[in-house]
Protein backbone atom coordinates (compact mmCIF):
# COMPACT_ATOMS: atom_id res chain seq x y z
CA UNK A 1 0.00 0.00 0.00
CA UNK A 2 1.24 3.44 -0.88
CA UNK A 3 1.33 6.26 1.57
CA UNK A 4 -1.52 8.70 1.14
CA UNK A 5 0.95 11.56 1.06
CA UNK A 6 4.00 10.82 -1.06
CA UNK A 7 7.24 12.82 -0.71
CA UNK A 8 6.35 15.08 -3.61
CA UNK A 9 2.97 15.75 -2.05
CA UNK A 10 4.66 17.04 1.09
CA UNK A 11 6.85 19.21 -1.12
CA UNK A 12 3.82 20.62 -2.96
CA UNK A 13 2.02 21.18 0.32
CA UNK A 14 5.01 23.01 1.80
CA UNK A 15 5.51 25.16 -1.29
CA UNK A 16 1.86 26.17 -1.48
CA UNK A 17 1.69 26.82 2.26
CA UNK A 18 4.72 29.11 1.88
CA UNK A 19 3.07 30.83 -1.07
CA UNK A 20 -0.10 31.36 0.96
CA UNK A 21 1.88 32.83 3.85
CA UNK A 22 3.74 35.09 1.43
CA UNK A 23 0.46 36.27 -0.09
CA UNK A 24 -0.96 36.98 3.33
CA UNK A 25 2.09 38.97 4.38
CA UNK A 26 2.30 40.95 1.16
CA UNK A 27 -1.40 41.67 0.78
CA UNK A 28 -2.44 42.03 4.40
CA UNK A 29 0.83 43.09 5.96
CA UNK A 30 1.47 46.80 5.91
CA UNK A 31 -1.65 48.29 4.45
CA UNK A 32 -3.11 49.50 7.72
CA UNK A 33 -3.00 53.19 8.25
CA UNK A 34 -1.66 54.86 11.34
CA UNK A 35 -2.77 58.46 11.05
CA UNK A 36 -5.59 60.46 9.53
CA UNK A 37 -5.04 63.83 7.87
CA UNK A 38 -8.04 66.10 7.94
CA UNK A 39 -8.09 68.84 5.34
CA UNK A 40 -10.37 71.84 5.24
CA UNK A 41 -10.43 74.03 2.16
CA UNK A 42 -7.20 72.51 0.89
CA UNK A 43 -5.27 73.25 4.04
CA UNK A 44 -4.26 70.69 6.65
CA UNK A 45 -6.70 71.12 9.50
CA UNK A 46 -5.45 68.38 11.79
CA UNK A 47 -3.39 65.22 11.71
CA UNK A 48 -4.48 62.68 14.29
CA UNK A 49 -3.29 59.22 15.28
CA UNK A 50 -5.73 56.40 14.69
CA UNK A 51 -4.72 54.89 18.01
CA UNK A 52 -6.68 57.40 20.05
CA UNK A 53 -10.43 57.33 19.70
CA UNK A 54 -11.87 60.81 19.34
CA UNK A 55 -14.24 62.96 17.35
CA UNK A 56 -12.89 66.01 15.53
CA UNK A 57 -15.28 68.78 14.58
CA UNK A 58 -14.24 70.56 11.40
CA UNK A 59 -16.05 73.80 10.59
CA UNK A 60 -16.66 74.42 6.89
CA UNK A 61 -18.71 76.74 4.69
CA UNK A 62 -21.93 74.73 5.20
CA UNK A 63 -21.50 73.77 8.81
CA UNK A 64 -19.58 71.33 10.94
CA UNK A 65 -18.21 68.05 9.61
CA UNK A 66 -17.55 65.49 12.33
CA UNK A 67 -14.68 63.08 11.85
CA UNK A 68 -14.73 60.06 14.13
CA UNK A 69 -11.68 57.99 14.93
CA UNK A 70 -12.21 54.64 16.60
CA UNK A 71 -10.42 51.30 16.77
CA UNK A 72 -7.74 52.23 14.23
CA UNK A 73 -10.26 53.45 11.67
CA UNK A 74 -11.72 56.79 10.71
CA UNK A 75 -14.94 57.95 9.11
CA UNK A 76 -16.99 61.06 8.47
CA UNK A 77 -19.65 60.70 11.11
CA UNK A 78 -21.74 63.70 10.24
CA UNK A 79 -21.64 66.20 7.44
CA UNK A 80 -23.97 68.93 6.19
CA UNK A 81 -23.50 67.96 2.53
CA UNK A 82 -26.81 67.29 0.74
CA UNK A 83 -25.92 63.90 -0.69
CA UNK A 84 -23.85 62.49 2.16
CA UNK A 85 -21.43 60.66 -0.11
CA UNK A 86 -18.54 60.92 2.33
CA UNK A 87 -20.67 59.73 5.23
CA UNK A 88 -21.91 56.73 3.30
CA UNK A 89 -18.37 55.75 2.48
CA UNK A 90 -18.18 54.41 6.01
CA UNK A 91 -15.08 53.41 7.89
CA UNK A 92 -11.66 53.78 6.27
CA UNK A 93 -8.83 51.66 7.59
CA UNK A 94 -6.16 51.37 4.90
CA UNK A 95 -3.47 53.87 4.02
CA UNK A 96 -4.32 55.99 1.02
CA UNK A 97 -8.08 55.75 1.45
CA UNK A 98 -9.89 59.08 1.31
CA UNK A 99 -13.36 60.40 2.00
CA UNK A 100 -14.17 63.78 0.55
CA UNK A 101 -17.09 65.99 1.51
CA UNK A 102 -16.92 68.34 -1.44
CA UNK A 103 -19.77 70.74 -0.54
CA UNK A 104 -18.22 71.40 2.84
CA UNK A 105 -14.67 71.42 1.44
CA UNK A 106 -13.51 68.83 3.93
CA UNK A 107 -11.62 65.62 3.38
CA UNK A 108 -9.91 62.92 5.36
CA UNK A 109 -7.04 60.82 4.14
CA UNK A 110 -5.39 57.92 5.91
CA UNK A 111 -1.64 57.71 5.88
CA UNK A 112 1.17 55.68 7.37
CA UNK A 113 1.93 52.14 6.39
CA UNK A 114 2.35 51.43 2.74
CA UNK A 115 0.35 53.68 0.48
CA UNK A 116 -1.35 52.06 -2.45
CA UNK A 117 -0.94 55.16 -4.63
CA UNK A 118 0.93 58.45 -4.51
CA UNK A 119 -1.81 60.95 -5.20
CA UNK A 120 -5.40 61.22 -6.28
CA UNK A 121 -6.70 63.84 -8.69
CA UNK A 122 -10.33 64.75 -9.10
Amino acid sequence: MRALLRPGDWLTLALLAAATALLAVSLWGDGHARTVRIKQHGRLFAEASLLHDRVVAVPGPLGVTEVEIAAGRARIRRDPSPRQYCVRQGWLDRAGQVAICLPNATSIELSGGERAYDSLQF
Binding site: R2, R6, G8, D9, T12, L13
Partner: peptide, 18 residues
Amino acid sequence: RLPARGFGPVTASLVAAF
Protein backbone atom coordinates in the same frame (compact mmCIF):
# COMPACT_ATOMS: atom_id res chain seq x y z
CA ARG B 1 2.49 14.48 -15.77
CA LEU B 2 4.61 14.58 -12.63
CA PRO B 3 6.34 11.30 -11.77
CA ALA B 4 3.83 9.07 -9.96
CA ARG B 5 6.45 7.77 -7.56
CA GLY B 6 6.80 11.08 -5.78
CA PHE B 7 3.57 12.86 -6.52
CA GLY B 8 0.12 11.50 -5.83
CA PRO B 9 -3.47 12.67 -5.77
CA VAL B 10 -2.74 15.17 -3.00
CA THR B 11 -0.46 17.17 -5.28
CA ALA B 12 -3.03 17.03 -8.06
CA SER B 13 -5.75 18.10 -5.67
CA LEU B 14 -3.72 21.00 -4.29
CA VAL B 15 -2.74 22.21 -7.75
CA ALA B 16 -6.37 21.93 -8.88
CA ALA B 17 -7.61 23.84 -5.83
CA PHE B 18 -5.16 26.69 -6.38
